[in-house]
Design a binder for these strands. Structure first.
Lengths: 146, 146
DNA sequence: CTGGGTGCAAAAGGTTTGCAACACT
DNA sequence: AGTGTTGCAAACCTTTTGCACCCAG
């Protein structure tokens, strides 16, 4: 229970940083919305709905911090926002996203389907792969059945 | 020679649009820089270097237009710009990008390595794939050999 | 107590929009 | 001639920064 907060507290201490109320709130929001892909504005609104007013600059600075500490990762859905998503520490690479072109839903895809691709890219381009970001567009199951 | 401009002219006519000097200049810039991934500011500067002053709004509106007509496609390299690249009409999907984390170079990758992936995604998520965007991060051949 | 953190408001950076003048067709 | 297009400047939207005040350790 709240292992993430404890881990967070430890990492902050290790870096001479402080566990503030605002940082707790934002980390908790990510925990509660681990299926979503939040941007700064959405975080601020969500906090406000819980009765917690957090300044805009603080939200942006906290997002930077959480990313640097590896608790969230940036994702880009081409909508002019920088979005963030809770990181599952078990994942080796970032996971990927299926984006439905009808309803806009974004489905997380855990599979690491690109292992074979890395070898091909290395052989053909002499390129040493460290990570990859994949967005797959199409129509989701629900929209297909309508 | 200049098949692209002729095709462009035809498509514009079909849509009751006009072939203006600015549009020609911008399309030519894409042709001359088909290996690059230009943003609006870069286009404007490149035009100016050729002695062609084009207004900012015109650049943005022309990029929208070229994208809608299918001559260029948006690509996102996570650098806060909307970038565009000349579309090779022979390609079925957009092509993908290898991004070197040392020198920043972006290499185009024509291979459609993800055909098998589409089937897997369909079987597992009931998701009907229409397109995919892949960015692969790592270290390029030149940087590796240094 | 003291250095890191917060909130405000201003600035920055990229893109979009309104409008009068302009130029393809 | 007439409609689409341009350029300017202002507006917009998201993110960043400076600074005085605040609070966790």
């Amino acid at each position: 229970m709240n292992k993430k907060i404890n881990n967070f507290e430890k990492q902050l201490k290790d870096n001479n940083l402080k566990l503030t109320g605002q940082r707790k709130i934002i980390l908790n929001l990510f925990e509660e919305n681990s299926d979503k892909h939040l941007n700064a504005v959405e975080i601020q609104k969500a906090a406000l709905q819980q009765g917690n007013r957090i300044g805009t600059a603080t939200v942006y600075r906290t997002l930077d911090l959480l990313e640097k500490l590896g608790f969230v990762s940036k994702i880009n859905l081409d909508d002019s926002y920088i979005r963030y998503q809770f990181v599952d520490t078990k994942e080796e690479h970032e996971h990927h996203h299926l984006i439905c072109e009808r309803c806009g839903k974004v489905i997380d895809m855990q599979d690491d389907l690109l292992d074979s691709l890395e070898k091909q890219v290395h052989d053909k381009y002499g390129f040493n792969v460290t990570n990859h970001k994949v967005r797959i567009y199409g129509v989701c199951k629900e929209c297909l059945s309508k």
